[in-house]
């Protein structure tokens, strides 16, 4: 991305108008050394965000948790029962699905078990913003690609002509 586009995104960011993808682009741009001089003042902030995301729990945390979890080992019998009934239920479900399937339509996400809803943007304005940013990126890149392709086509036809002449 060029300097002007990034500067525009930075301004948009402070106005609270950037989409998630644009913010990701900003963090990516400022992550590495090759930042234009006039944009360097913004680097620490976006670098801070990226660095802060790397903070993690200590490696022995899991062990500690497991010890905590295993402490009250009562009601094991009940748990076994619950587990068994859930196995029975899922068998029932599979049988039911098997007979029921051919007449019903399968939602497209079921086959892959991705819960897209979890990531769904449900606010109109934000959806508009995200869509616009996405289309902007798509459109610009399509054009860039097409221009490149046109250039190489040009070269090829020119070469061809030269050979023919």
């Amino acid at each position: 991305m060029n300097t002007i586009a990034i500067k525009q995104l930075v301004d948009k960011y402070f106005e609270g108008e950037t989409s998630l993808v644009e913010e990701q682009q900003l963090r990516a741009y400022f992550k590495e050394g090759a930042v234009a001089e006039e944009l360097q003042e913004y680097q620490p902030l976006f670098q801070y965000f990226a660095t802060a995301k790397r903070e993690e729990l200590p490696s022995d945390f899991d062990e500690r948790i497991v010890i905590e979890l295993q402490r009250p080992a009562k009601r094991r019998f009940m748990r076994r029962m619950v587990q068994m009934s859930s196995v029975a239920a899922s068998v029932m479900l599979m049988v039911a699905a098997y007979f029921w399937y051919p007449t019903t339509e399968l939602p497209s996400t079921v086959s892959n078990q991705i819960n897209w809803e979890q990531y769904e943007i449900t606010d109109e304005e934000e959806a508009y913003k995200e869509t616009k940013a996405a289309l902007k990126l798509l459109s610009r890149n399509l054009n860039r690609g097409a221009k490149k392709a046109a250039k190489s086509m040009d070269k090829i036809t020119k070469k061809k002509r030269r050979i023919e002449n």
């Binding site: 998630l20 993808v21 990701q24 897209w116 809803e117 990531y119 769904e120 943007i121 449900t122 109109e124 959806a127 508009y128 995200e130 869509t131 996405a134």
Partner: peptide, 14 residues
């Protein structure tokens, strides 16, 4: 990954 999903319903709203 940052994940974004916009549903058909949302496009109608837009």
């Amino acid at each position: 990954f940052t994940v974004v999903y916009i549903s058909p319903k949302m496009f109608q709203m837009i």
